[in-house]
Design a protein around this nucleic acid. Structure first.
Lengths: 327, 327
DNA sequence: CTGAAAGCGCTTACAG
DNA sequence: CTGAAAGCGCTTACAG
């Protein structure tokens, strides 16, 4: 900027005005404006956003903290967040927690120090302090996919309870009676709600059987899911269907169903929470629950932008998920 | 920092020294050091990395420009890049090109203005200028997955030609003769090499038949893949196998194979370029090509760091991919 | 061992 | 319509 100003015999301030687009109105003459722009192009001027950020106090970037970017659900979510942020002129810094509270803390601390203008995050078990730290700084933040019920903060989720209950109702209406659930034992509402929806639906029809509820430890999932499948296969009363509470559990579960020679859907039907883009590589029918990922990602950004512009009413968004069929 | 200095009757400079970890040696007394740290903790001091960046000229962040973060391959790649960057204390800003040269240009321009210390990118067709722009700035950059052959720059790829030729050889050795290929018609070496590997292997055995080469237009892929499958099914000489040159093509292709009632592997075998984490939801055998994604991502970061530290020898890394079986 | 000062590249009141 | 100056929060020679 100084160089441009020198060449043109202008001041740095004037150059700044036109290059940052604040030259409208009668502030700077058309003539000057034109000359500055031309010279900037000639000298191949590129603005330094870091300097601008320090000066304005806005970094024009937002932080996104998710479990794991290589997971299809979060990959999709991040994609839509990024595309939406781009529309507002914002850039996105992502980081992974791998469900660890330490990594969660580190990720957020780094983002805060980088002076992001807002944060979208997927809460981690035992990570309440981290969310509070952001809020104490008065920085806009929105939780996605899960939320801490004890903290009054923005969140966007789907109605996990309702859609889980509904999908089980659908199976019951089809005549299936013995329905199992395979779910992580993690203490997060997204998961507990899914399990509870299942329980209530079956209970209402007097079909609940505790032996059909399989809770899986996250660390040791492969082994535990395998055992759950074998167990369900060997249940003296034939099991009609299995409701898998998340993508990974479904994939592993179905793998072992194949290994055990369980015919899908003839012997057992399957339900998957979340869509998998490669459902079509198998030709068996899968009932699945589809979250409105795009809407969720876009909404998260919209809320963030609203809050950045000063509105600080807390938003608690609950979207509806849909029940769909792969074939 | 000023506040801490004031409270302690020290200068800002001294505080900066200890808080940025440059107080080693005899530079600052142990006593002062201790007091500063304690006060910083008490006052809950959080460094402003933006200010530091402006001062040091290093942003401690790198840019990653990929096709689409919601794609499993790029999601995995990005994950490993992020984890590796974290080890070096770097943060990652990602953006998607959706294969568009305009978005590619915009993404890189934004990153440059944000003063990233280096860029890892997946080249886009017709995007040479963008890469040159980065290099003109003397900013470290490494291409991943593909590269522009006319530009002397770092890249990390796998030997697409060799592994494609090898996988076809494997099929031939198994006794399969009529092998088809379904591949995008995009003019990028990753894709053209795969097709050429296929062609050369078959040619060597006198098994090449142009009717079995199906080039797919990216924009209209669903329809074109469908037509290709029907066409192959109706080929008067039975087709024994199909080599799908990428993940998406495979998923769509297999979908239509199921729709057309083609039995896999009894009637036709299938080969997929790239691993899909949900292969196991189907119980048919799939031959696939597995890229060392983790090594590629880590290496990309390593090279970037090397170049940032002044080494500017150009690295052209070619990794080997492996042939694997889903069952 | 510590302080005073300049500088990183911008923006933005304030004067004129 | 334009300029001079202060300031954003750090770092880093340079003195002492």
């Amino acid at each position: 900027m100084q160089d441009i100003a020198d060449k043109l015999g202008l001041s740095k301030g004037t150059v700044s005005l036109v290059l940052s687009g604040k030259a409208k109105g009668s502030r700077v003459s058309e003539e000057t404006c034109r000359k500055v722009k031309q010279m900037a192009a000639e000298m191949n001027y590129q603005p330094n956003e870091i300097a601008r950020s320090l000066s304005t106090g806005k970094s024009m970037s937002i932080g996104v903290v998710i479990t794991d970017i290589s997971n299809e659900f979060f990959g999709n979510l991040t994609f839509h967040i990024q595309e939406q942020a781009k529309k507002y002129g914002y850039t996105v810094i992502t980081s992974n927690t791998n469900e660890s509270p330490e990594e969660f803390y580190d990720a957020v601390t780094t983002l805060l120090n980088k002076q992001v203008d807002g944060i979208i995050l997927v809460p981690v078990d035992e990570g309440q302090e981290v969310l509070l730290k952001i809020m104490k700084r008065n920085l806009p933040v929105v939780q996605v996919d899960r939320y801490y019920p004890d903290i009054k903060a923005n969140y966007i989720i789907i109605d996990n309870y309702k859609v889980s209950r509904d999908v089980i109702e659908v199976l019951i209406r089809k005549g299936l009676q013995r329905i199992a659930v395979v779910c992580y034992d993690i203490n997060l509402n997204a998961l507990t709600d899914r399990r509870q929806g299942y329980i209530d639906a079956l209970d209402r029809h007097g079909l609940l059987d505790p032996a059909l509820i399989k809770n899986i430890n996250y660390e040791n999932q492969e082994e535990e899911i395998k055992r759950a499948i074998i167990d369900l296969k060997n249940n003296p009363d034939k099991v009609d269907a299995i409701f898998f509470c998340s993508r990974r559990v479904f994939i592993t579960g179905v793998k072992y169903m194949h290994r055990e020679g369980i015919k899908i859907p003839e012997e057992m039907e399957v339900v998957c929470f979340d869509e998998i883009d490669s459902f079509s590589i198998t030709n068996m029918p899968i009932t699945y629950i589809k979250q409105p990922i795009r809407k969720m990602g876009e909404k998260a950004v919209d809320i963030l932008m609203e809050q950045m512009s000063g509105i600080d009413e807390i938003k608690e968004c609950v979207f509806e998920a849909e029940i769909e069929y792969s074939i």
